[in-house]
C-alpha cells in the first residue's frame, strides 16, 4: 500500500473544504494523478472504531478526513470506554480500539484467549491540567506530593492552608471527572499511585464543562481535566504549574510533547486488530491516521506528536506491516 501524496497537502485540502463538493473534486484530481486507484478510488467497506471517549475526537476527526477522500468507506466511532473498547476488540466486534492508556495484562490475556492479535500506535499526547479559580492569587505551583495529599483516598485536606502553610485560610473545593472517565483513571494513577485511588468527597462530573464552571465559580476551587479544556476556558481559569521532582513546569504543548511536564502528560493510543488490517479499507484508514496525525491532533484539540514521537510512530507502523507479511 503506497501513500498517494503528501499527507500535509491531503489534510490541508480536506480541512479547507468549506464547500465540500468543490474540494472533494480538487483533491480527487490530485488522487488520480498519483494513481491511488479508480475514481472514488474503489475502497469500500466498514471500519469500526470503539473505546476511550478521550481518544474518540481524534478517531472521529481522522474518520472525517479519510471519508472526504474515500466516500465509499463507512467509519463508525463508539465510546464505550478504554476497557470496553479492548473487550470489543478482543471479541472481534470492532477493528480498532481507542485507548487513553496501555492495554493491561488482563486485557492482553483476554485477547490472547480469543486469538486476536493487535498493534499499538501512539497517535497524540494528552496533558492533564490542574486548574484553580481566577480569584486564587496565592497558588502558582504544587508538588505532586501536595496533589497526592489533597486527592488521596480519605484525605481530610479541606483548606488551602493545609496544603501549604504559606497559603491563606480559604476553603478548598474540589472538582473533577467521575470514576468512569479515563482522565480520572490517569490522574489517580499518576498522583495516587493506583488507578481509581481517589478521595470521594469531591464534585464529580463526566462533563468537563461542569468542572470548568465549578472551579471558576469558587475562590478556593480546584479541578483537573485535559489541557484542551483549559485552552478553551483560559479566561475563566488559572493554570497551576506542577513539580514532579525537577522543579515547577507549566503544561504547554512543548512540555507535554517532550515529556518534561511530569507526571500529568500521557499518550493516546489506537490498537488496530491484525486481522482487520488485512482488509484494505482498514489498512488505508490506519495509514492515513498515522500520516495525518498532526492535523488530526490539532483538529481534535490535543497536543500533536513531537518529531521524535512521529518517527517512532512510523517505525511502529512499519513493524506492524512486516509482522503481517512474513
Amino acid at each position: 500500500m503506497n501513500i498517494p501524496r503528501s499527507p500535509r497537502r491531503a489534510a490541508a485540502c480536506a480541512l479547507l473544504s468549506a464547500a465540500a463538493v468543490a474540494a472533494a473534486g480538487a483533491c480527487g484530481g490530485a488522487d488520480a494523478g498519483t494513481g491511488t486507484g479508480t475514481g472514488g478510488d474503489g475502497l469500500s467497506g466498514t471500519v469500526r472504531v470503539d473505546g476511550s471517549s478521550t481518544v474518540a475526537p481524534l478517531s472521529t476527526a481522522a474518520a472525517q478526513l479519510f471519508q472526504q477522500h474515500h466516500p465509499g468507506v463507512r467509519i463508525t466511532v463508539g465510546t464505550s470506554g478504554t476497557g470496553g473498547g479492548f473487550e470489543k476488540l478482543c471479541n472481534g466486534e470492532t477493528d480498532i480500539a481507542d485507548a487513553s492508556r496501555k492495554i493491561t495484562a488482563e486485557e492482553q490475556a483476554h485477547c490472547a484467549e480469543k486469538g486476536v492479535a493487535y498493534g499499538e500506535l501512539r497517535i497524540a499526547n494528552d496533558g492533564l491540567s490542574v486548574v484553580v479559580s481566577k480569584d486564587n492569587d496565592f497558588a502558582d505551583c504544587l508538588t505532586v506530593e501536595q496533589l497526592h495529599r489533597i486527592w488521596e483516598p480519605g484525605s481530610r485536606v479541606d483548606n488551602w492552608n493545609q496544603v501549604d502553610a504559606a497559603f491563606p485560610d480559604v476553603a478548598l473545593e474540589l472538582f473533577g471527572p467521575g470514576p468512569d472517565s479515563g482522565t480520572f483513571d490517569y490522574f489517580t494513577h499518576a498522583v495516587n499511585g493506583g488507578e481509581g485511588r481517589s478521595r470521594t468527597d469531591y464534585s464529580p462530573s463526566e462533563d468537563d464543562n461542569v468542572t470548568v464552571r465549578g472551579v471558576s465559580g469558587s475562590e478556593g476551587g480546584m479541578g483537573y481535566f485535559g489541557l484542551s479544556y483549559y485552552e478553551e476556558n483560559k479566561d475563566e481559569l488559572r493554570l497551576l504549574e506542577i513539580d514532579g521532582g525537577n522543579g515547577c513546569v507549566a503544561p504547554t504543548r512543548t512540555t507535554v510533547q517532550n515529556g518534561t511536564y511530569r507526571p500529568l502528560s500521557r499518550p493516546l493510543l489506537i490498537y488496530p486488530s491484525a486481522a482487520a488490517l488485512d482488509r484494505r479499507e482498514v489498512e488505508a484508514f490506519v495509514e492515513a491516521y498515522v500520516d495525518d496525525s498532526a492535523d488530526i491532533a490539532r483538529a481534535a484539540q490535543f497536543v500533536p506528536l513531537g518529531p521524535g514521537q512521529e518517527a517512532e510512530l512510523r517505525r511502529d507502523l512499519a513493524r506492524l506491516r512486516e509482522e503481517r507479511t512474513p
Binding site: 471519508q67 467509519i75 463508539g78
Partner: peptide, 20 residues
C-alpha cells in the same frame, strides 16, 4: 444503548435492522 455500542460518530443512516 451506549453500552450496546450505540455510536457517537456515524455518517450514514440506518439501512435496515442489521445496520449500525
Amino acid at each position: 444503548l451506549l453500552l450496546l455500542g450505540g455510536l457517537t460518530f456515524i455518517t450514514f443512516n440506518p439501512t435496515g435492522v442489521h445496520s449500525q
